[in-house]
């Protein structure tokens, strides 16, 4: 097992304990799912992967190996650059594990029919995150034109849709 995969497993152990204790009978869990790390790998100075649980799936960044300090400080938020774009994370301390930065992909998980679906979605999210082509489609407002254009205003929605398509 790689160092990154081991980090994912250890983090999953923490959430397995949470699942068995405070999340039991919370009514928030999709019991068709289980806690599992998905796709943990090295990413620059970090380990990167997705933690799937019965109540959330988060993109997670941690220190690359056991005992290493997390290579990010502890402000509430952390922004990291990926090939698909910039992502904002919540930084927190996990007891017995250390500092992690997490970004919500899904929560709650009721709409996933089974574990395979959740795992497939998690893998697809990681693939998409590391795909530079995702950065090429403008998601935000297309650069606006300087001219005041009534036609553009009336057709605002349609026009920006056209501009957004490749």
């Amino acid at each position: 097992m790689s160092d990154a995969a081991a980090r994912g497993e250890k983090l999953a152990d923490f959430y397995r304990r949470v699942h068995e204790t405070s999340m039991r009978d919370s009514g928030l869990c999709n019991e068709a799912l289980a806690v599992e790390p998905v796709g943990f790998r090295d990413f620059g100075p970090y380990a990167l992967g997705v933690i799937v649980t019965p109540w959330f799936a988060n993109l997670v960044v941690t220190a690359p190996r056991e005992g290493a300090d997390a290579p990010f400080p502890d402000p509430a938020r952390l922004q990291l650059r990926f090939p698909a774009g910039d992502v904002e994370f919540n930084v927190s301390e996990i007891e017995g594990f250390g500092r992690i930065a997490a970004c919500s992909l899904f929560s709650p998980m009721d709409d996933f029919a089974d574990y395979e679906a959740a795992r497939t979605a998690a893998r697809a999210a990681l693939d998409a995150l590391l795909d530079p082509a995702m950065n090429e489609t403008p998601k935000r407002e297309p650069e606006p034109t300087a001219a005041l254009d009534r036609r553009a205003l009336f057709g605002g929605r349609r026009r920006s849709d056209e501009e957004a398509s490749p």
Binding site: L59, R81, F82, A84, G85, D86, V87, E88, C103, S104, L105, F106, A121, A125, A128, L129, M134, N135, P138, K139, R140
Partner: peptide, 9 residues
Amino acid sequence: AVKRITTKH
């Protein structure tokens, strides 16, 4: 989900 969380750079 990734489209939602990423900001283009």
